[in-house]
Design a protein around this nucleic acid. Structure first.
Lengths: 207, 207
DNA sequence: GTCTATAAGTAGATAGAC
DNA sequence: GTCTATCTACTTATAGAC
């Protein structure tokens, strides 16, 4: 047990419990998931409290689950700072949007968890962290990218903050609709959605 | 008890229970809300089961709550079919968007409830109804409105279905961000958001 | 229509054998 | 690190007095 990993305990069962926790909490909610179910999901005899050899409480598991997912997102973000140098094009914009949608897809369960538990008053610090990570940081990244592109006349003349807000809202809305209802809004595919959004963002003559 | 109201029972306590149910279920979830809490919220002595003189089960209250809210939405929609005749303008578009945002604001609790309980497997018919009401019908209304405006060259040349999907996704994303995080995405006000979105939708020279 | 009282079940959590 | 057994608290729901 090193200092660097903050006292993380190893063990396959612990990892399985984290996996099962993420899945069950996001599907059925924190309250809706019993420790018995979690035990059963990882092959432990349910109702015997073997769970408590790995986590102090159910809340404890919740925190560990979210922290692990947050680290995953941070790692993904770190490898993602490529930021198309050499100007903004239809293709680079579209790719950026699709990448964001894929990023959200990758943390589907985390987003579901957030949507389900946020505002309940429980885990306030955890949820604040998630909000900053998913909304604030994402918005800031878009804003920077669009600011310059607007100056060059490639993108429509619009306050970069407003444009970023619209774009990220559209992406989040599209993703959530997919996530919750299992269907693309209006049957519009990811590709078409991204292309259409790029079309709206760009000035007509621009390439 | 008339036939027309489907056997609705009158009584102030029942109405209070519906109000408290909507509030508590949307805030803390169905599982996270106990019958005791609901009783306490309406001034009944908690834990004595007086609740059960009004509703057969807790599930029963949930269904009654959602049905009442659905009726509210339908009534609101019915009075809403004004649909700016005489062409689409910047102002009429913006007003339409703002009206949609206000509509979502008005059913905030219902949307929160939907987000929290949908996909949990419980109340599947109820949730399917909500989805159709909020997403499908809203999208169809937008699509019809935009179809003609695109033909006249006022709006950008884009498949009406795609445009509707983008617009409704943006509105939903913006609203959810407000709802969950208590802050406008990027600090962009409703007015600015709607204006910006209209700007993106319209052709540059159009009025 | 609200109260007292309570039944029956299930939740989170612990002690200790193996 | 999993199992048996159990404690305590809380939940939904009911029976019956007023």
């Amino acid at each position: 047990m090193t200092v660097a990993d903050g006292g993380r305990k190893h063990g396959a069962t612990r990892v399985s419990l984290l996996d099962a926790g993420l899945k069950l909490f996001s599907e059925k909610g924190f309250d809706g998931t019993s420790v018995m179910e979690i035990e059963a999901a990882v092959g432990l005899k349910p109702g015997n409290g073997s769970f408590y050899r790995h986590f102090k409480t159910k809340e404890d598991l919740m925190e560990a689950v979210v922290h692990r997912e947050i680290e995953k997102v941070r790692a993904w973000r770190a490898g993602e700072i490529v930021s198309a140098k050499g100007g903004v094009s239809r293709e680079s914009l579209k790719n950026g949007l699709l990448q964001s949608l894929e990023g959200m897809e990758a943390i589907k369960d985390l987003m579901k968890l957030l949507a389900r538990e946020y505002g309940q008053g429980r885990f306030p610090e955890l949820m604040a962290q998630l909000k900053a990570l998913l909304l604030d940081e994402g918005l800031e990244a878009f804003r920077k990218e669009y600011r310059d592109a607007i100056k060059t006349g490639v993108l429509r003349e619009l306050d970069p903050r407003t444009l970023s807000s619209i774009v990220i809202s559209a992406l989040v809305g599209y993703h959530l609709s997919n996530m919750y209802f299992g269907a693309e809004p209006g049957g519009v595919s990811r590709e078409t959605f991204a292309s259409g959004l790029v079309e709206l963002m760009m000035n007509k003559g621009s390439e």
